[in-house]
């Protein structure tokens, strides 16, 4: 798992990349909206508390301020 935040005037984006061949549970400190996922079908999904990142899935979510 490789995760990082990008911050700027436009807000905070979280990038979470799962390099493992099994799903991972990821905790989020604040709620977030999925912007894009390599798994394809998660756009606009709301993330709260924690979420599951599939095997070899990468995801970008906008953190609520």
């Amino acid at each position: 798992m490789f995760a990082y935040l990008r911050e700027g005037d436009g807000g905070r984006m979280m990038v979470a990349l799962n390099f493992d061949d099994r799903p991972k549970r990821v905790a989020v400190p604040v709620s977030a909206d999925v912007a894009i996922s390599t798994a394809g079908e998660r756009a606009h999904e709301k993330l709260r508390g924690s979420f599951e990142l599939g095997r070899d899935e990468g995801l970008v979510a906008r953190l609520d301020s």
Binding site: I36, S37, T38, E41, A43, R62
Partner: peptide, 11 residues
């Protein structure tokens, strides 16, 4: 980001 058929838009 692809090949996939999804399109996501952020911000």
């Amino acid at each position: 980001c692809s090949p996939t058929c999804a399109r996501a838009t952020a911000g």
